[in-house]
Computed example of a mutant assay.
Amino acid sequence: MDLSQAIECANAFVFPGFLTDDASLSAERSRNEEALGVLRSAWMDAPVGKEPFPYELVLDLADRNRDICDRFGTERLRSLSPSSLARGLPAADLIRAVAVLQRRSVAQVTALSGPDARDLNVAWVDAPVSGMVVGIDIETTERDPARGYIINVGLEFMTVGPKAKPHDPFVGYFGLPEMYATKGVPLTEIHQITWSDLAGRVPFREDKQVQKALLATLCAYPFMAHNAAFEDSWFMLHIDGYAGARKDGRIVPIDTRDVCRRVDPEVRILPHETRPASLQSWAQRRGTLKAGESERHLGLDDVELMLATVQAEFAERNML
Score class of each variant (00 low, 15 high):
Pro128Asp: 07
Ala62Arg: 08
Arg201Asp: 07
Ala229Val: 08
Met44Gly: 01
Ala27Thr: 11
Asp116Asn: 10
Leu85Glu: 06
Asp116Gln: 12
Leu112Gly: 02
Pro177Ile: 01
Phe13Tyr: 06
Arg317Trp: 01
Leu25Ser: 03
Leu19Gly: 00
Lys163His: 13
Pro271Trp: 05
Leu89Gly: 04
Thr159Arg: 12
Leu3Trp: 11
Trp124Tyr: 01
Ile68Pro: 06
Thr20Glu: 09
Trp234Ala: 01
Arg275Val: 05
Phe13Ile: 11
Gly131Val: 12
Val129Tyr: 02
Val134Pro: 03
Arg317Met: 02
His226Ala: 07
Ala10His: 06
Pro169Met: 03
Ile136Thr: 02
Thr74Met: 13
Asp207Val: 14
Val134Trp: 07
Ala92His: 13
Pro82Asp: 00
Arg87Cys: 00
Gly200Tyr: 15
Lys50Met: 14
Gly299Tyr: 00
Glu51Asp: 04
Leu61Cys: 04
Gly73Arg: 04
Leu176Gly: 02
Gly154Gln: 14
Val303Leu: 03
Lys290Glu: 13
Leu80Thr: 03
Ser30Met: 01
Ala243Arg: 07
Ala229Glu: 08
Gln284Lys: 13
Ala86Phe: 08
Val133Tyr: 04
Gly114Asp: 08
Ser30Leu: 02
Asn227Cys: 10
Glu189Phe: 05
Ser113Thr: 14
Ile136Asp: 00
Gly37Ile: 14
Glu34Gly: 14
Asp70Gly: 07
Asp60Leu: 08
Ala229Leu: 05
Ser113Phe: 09
Val259Thr: 13
Ala291Trp: 04
Ala6Val: 10
Leu89Ala: 01
Lys163Val: 09
Val100Ile: 12
Cys260Lys: 12
Glu206Arg: 15
Leu25Trp: 06
Asp70Leu: 05
Tyr55Phe: 15
Arg29Ser: 11
Val48Glu: 15
Gln209Phe: 05
Gly17Asp: 10
Gln209Trp: 03
Leu89Asn: 02
Lys247Arg: 14
Leu101Gly: 08
Arg40Glu: 04
Phe204Asp: 08
Val185Ile: 12
Ala229Met: 05
Ile239Pro: 00
Ile7Thr: 11
Leu94Asn: 09
Thr188Tyr: 08
Leu198Arg: 07
Trp195Gly: 06
Glu231Trp: 06
Leu120His: 06
Ser278Arg: 03
Ser4Val: 15
Arg64Tyr: 12
